[in-house]
């Protein structure tokens, strides 16, 4: 396969993934401390390690969660 094409595809993919995860990390900080409570009242009295457990998922699925939060408004 053409090396230049593979390099371009790889770098585009990894750059997009990187940006997505960076934004996700920023969102996840808001989400685990505040957003989750609004989305699901069951989170309110949950222990701190529960927030730790949902943290990686909120980094990966931040678009879905943000959409759900906006709809809730």
């Amino acid at each position: 396969m053409d090396r230049a094409l593979v390099v371009w595809l790889t770098d585009s993919f990894l750059l997009s993934l990187g940006i997505y995860l960076l934004l996700g990390t920023a969102f996840s900080i808001y989400f685990v401390f505040a957003g989750a409570n609004r989305l699901d009242p069951g989170v309110k009295d949950a222990p701190w390690h529960f927030r730790l457990i949902i943290w990686p998922g909120s980094v990966l699925l931040w678009v879905t969660l943000l959409t759900k939060l906006l709809k809730k408004k």
């Binding site: 457990i53 949902i54 998922g57 879905t64 969660l65």
Partner: peptide, 16 residues
Amino acid sequence: LGLMAVTSHDFWLKNL
């Protein structure tokens, strides 16, 4: 597998 592992808690089942 990572995506599945991080969403295995019931919280995700309900909210997704």
